[in-house]
Simulated assay, not measured.
Amino acid sequence: MANNPVFLNLVLLEGQPLTLLHAAKQAGFDEVEIWQENVLAAEGGAEAIRAQAQRLNLGFTNCQVLRDFAGAPRVLREEKRQQAQQFFQLAQAIGCRTVQAPACTRTDCQADLIDEDLCWLSAEAARHDLRIMYEPMAWSTVDNRLGPTWQRLKRLDLPNVGLVVDLFHIAARGDDASVLDAIPADRIYEVQLCDMAEAVTPGDMTQLMETARHCRLLPGDGILPIATFVAALQRKAYRGPVGIEVFNDRLKQQAPQSAAAQAFAALRRCWP
């Protein structure tokens, strides 16, 4: 853990946003993944979030989540671009350099527009001195596996767009750690760790999304070969942020200090 910033996705915690930042820092995390909803719900808004983070010396791994951007139908293009600009402004307001934009999940996703949209997003983010984290999710319409998504980014060669490596989405699609072999370490912008109690069926979207949004486990508490993924990342000398993204209803009901401490302990065990 000494060479990697460690983060907690605030989705694990319940409570007032400023309290959640304190809980994450108290547990030992260097950074947090913060949601737009966290910023909007904070008393004092973005200014208060930024001031609290500065007091705590707590960084932001990213601001999320810019949904369904790349590949949205043309009729929505202007609306989506306005949303992106709002996210850029929000990220800058809290002192965050990275916006997360997962692959489109719409059933009417336009595959032929994805490249163009990512290029626009890259150029606009660069004007704001920001980066984009592009995440293939197991239920994304087109870019739903890490390997093919990396091939797209490799072909586009956008200097400020990199991958999110999320173990849940990799395993949910039936891939293993070998999918990481071809990806340069500097093109991975973050690694999200979690676990699951039982395997999900890639074609069963109901089960997959229920597990993803409510029943993920802390790494080491389930069946995923966490150590294999960690070893693959460490072999390639990955030095970027690594952390916990766990959607878990039971943990979310606990005091944020307790849930954050459990998350940090799990991270220490699996990422030495």
Rank of each mutant, 00 (worst) to 15 (best):
E78N: 14
D115G: 09
A260Y: 07
A227H: 10
Q207E: 04
I132E: 11
G240Y: 05
K25E: 04
G59T: 03
Q92Y: 03
M137K: 11
R187P: 01
V6W: 00
L163Y: 10
Y238A: 04
D112K: 07
E190K: 12
I49F: 02
L130M: 10
L113Q: 15
G59C: 08
G243W: 00
V39H: 04
A70N: 09
R269C: 05
L58S: 07
P17C: 02
W271H: 04
A266C: 10
Q36I: 01
K236T: 05
R268Q: 15
Q52I: 01
Q52Y: 00
L146C: 12
V11R: 04
P102S: 04
Q83M: 13
L10Y: 04
D176K: 04
T61Y: 03
A237F: 02
C194W: 01
G203N: 08
R74D: 13
I132C: 09
P272C: 03
N62A: 12
F229C: 07
F168W: 06
A93R: 12
Q64I: 05
C119P: 02
V65G: 00
P272T: 00
A93L: 11
K252L: 13
V165Q: 03
D129Y: 07
C270D: 00
D249K: 15
L180Q: 05
T19D: 15
R239F: 00
A263C: 06
V200N: 01
G162F: 14
N9M: 02
H214P: 02
S122F: 08
E78R: 15
Y134V: 02
C119L: 13
L218T: 07
D68G: 04
F88N: 09
R250L: 15
Q64K: 03
Q100E: 11
F60H: 07
A172H: 04
T149F: 08
Q82W: 03
A231E: 14
A212V: 00
N4V: 01
G59M: 06
N248A: 11
R67H: 11
G28P: 03
A2Q: 12
S178N: 14
A46C: 08
P17N: 02
G222V: 05
Q207C: 00
G71P: 10
K154R: 15
R216V: 11
I170H: 01
